[in-house]
Structures are given as C-alpha cells and as structure tokens.
Nucleic acid binder design. Structure first.
Lengths: 140, 140
DNA sequence: GTAATGTCTATAGTCACTATAGGGTCAAGG
DNA sequence: CCTTGACCCTATAGTGACTATAGACATTAC
C-alpha cells in the first residue's frame, strides 16, 4: 500500500484546519517539518493527517496549544498509564465549568440591566447607563 | 469645593484598574490625556474617575474596548434616545448566551470522554485518547 | 497561451493587556 | 544629608492563536 502524499491544501481540506494555521503549527513545533517535493511543496503522509486531526479535535474541545502539546506527548508514550491524560481532561473540564458559571452570572446581570430600559427615554435619564455607571459588579 | 486631583495610583486604587492599564487606555484613546503636574505626573479629576469606573464596569460585563468606546460616545450624547444603548447591550447579551451554549456542549462532551476512563489502562488502550482521536465533534 | 488556483517565504497586525528595562520624584527615618 | 522605599515616567517587547498582506513561483484547467 502506497502512502497518499498529501499537499498542504489536501491536509487542510481533510482536517478542517486552514493552510496558514498548519504552517503556523509547524513554526511553533506542534507539527513536525514534513518532507518537501522537488518544487518545495510540503508533502504529508497519513500520520501527519492523524496528528493534525487529533489537534483539531482538541482545539474543538477547548484545549490550549500548550495543553495539546502535553496531550500529544503523553499519547505517544503508549506504555504509560492513562491517568495523566485523565487528569488533564478533568482539569480542563473544571475550567470550562468555571467559565460557564462566570458567563451565566454575567448574562443574568445583562438581562437585569436590559430589563430596566423603558424604551422611550433619552440618554440623560437612561436607566441602563445609570446601571452600568452606578454599580459595582462582582469582579472575577 | 475643590477638585481632588488624583495621581494615577489613586485612580487605580479607586477604580480597580491597574496603573499600566490606565496608561494603556490613554494610549489607545479610551481615556483623554490628563493634565500633568510640574513633575510630569498625571493628574486626574473626578470626571476621569467616573469615566474609568464606567469602563471598568463595562469590562466586567464582558464588553470589548471597541464596544465600550461606542457606549461612551453614546452615553455622552444626552439628548439622544437610549434605544441604541439598549440594542448594544441586547446584542452583547445574545453573544454571551451563545458562548454559554457552546461551552455547555463542550462540557458535556468532556464529561462523556472522561467517563470512558477505566483508570487502570495504559495509553495504548486509553479510551480517552481514542475518543479524542477518533471522532468528529461539531465545529463552531 | 493564459488565467485561475495553489504554494512558498517573510513580516506585521489583532486584542487586551503584561512584563521588562532604565530612569526620575518624593516622603519618612536615621 | 543620605538612604530607603514607594511611587511615577517612557519605550519596547511579549502573550495566544491565529489572520492578513505582499510578492514570487508552480501547477492545473480551459
């Protein structure tokens, strides 16, 4: 079975990651430098596609590129316990849940402020402006 | 009644915005250039403090600095209808709610993945790694 | 043949700060 | 008077995760 030999555009289509972003991942060392064709074009194999798809999926899950670096290096040590992976994902879930709580508090506050508007007011007696100017909202 | 004449550190303490951030707001034109003392120190009055507190509160509510620029300029036109302010805040609430939905979907997915872990596995048969590598999750 | 598309490199811009370097000013204590 | 420490000043570079731009070469479709 011969390798497919993908160009960067193919890789982009198959992974859903933009061409420029693939090159960016290469410059920061998240993707290894691929072979080059005689014309200088990058030439990728299936392994590169899989790595990129893994990265893409991690991004969709909200992991940072640094976290992904860790996940990738862990995932390559096939003999190790998967406990560390578990810890990373659990911690990330925790962060996401905290972020949700913060945004929900924020949405409540915005709804409250918005409900103050009587619609026919001028700025000078706008209750929204008053509400924003006059109160202290719990900081992060 | 004489004006208080605050130094930048006082302004920082009273507003909860860091000194460097206040200077940053000045360079991007969000805060006007203040008077200077003979020693070159910035000297602020009550109006500057109020403007900064308004900005701070908007940031707490998740508005971008550009949105805040708009809010500030609207808020200064006291004769206008407050409808535009209302629209801006409503639109922002909308964005926040969308972000919450996205994060909730993400948290569900992370919980699902995390539940797959059997705890005693090695990386090579880690169901989390499989789950991340093998599936397509709805992109934004 | 030519036009459209794809690829290459290098550099700068985005947002909202944060950090660093290197210096000047001022009040209190010894 | 001197020093210590807290405060202030400017200018520049770095952060994360890209995105945009410019200018050049290669390949593909008609």
């Amino acid at each position: 079975m011969t390798e497919p030999a993908l160009k960067i555009g193919d890789l982009a289509r198959l992974s859903g990651v933009k061409v420029v972003t693939i090159r960016y991942y290469e410059t920061i060392g998240l993707l290894p430098e691929p072979r080059r064709n005689v014309n200088g074009y990058r030439s990728y194999d299936r392994a590169a596609l899989e790595r990129l798809q893994f990265i893409r999926r991690c991004r969709d899950l909200g992991f940072s590129l640094d976290q992904i670096r860790d996940l990738l290096s862990l995932a390559s040590e096939t003999e190790r316990s998967c406990a560390e992976i578990d810890i990373l994902t659990a911690r990330h879930l925790d962060e996401v849940e905290k972020k949700i709580l913060k945004l929900q508090a924020l949405a409540r506050e915005l709804r409250r402020i918005n409900a103050l508007c009587q619609g026919d007011a001028t700025i000078s007696n706008c209750r929204i402006v008053e509400a924003i100017a006059g109160e202290q909202f719990g900081a992060p």
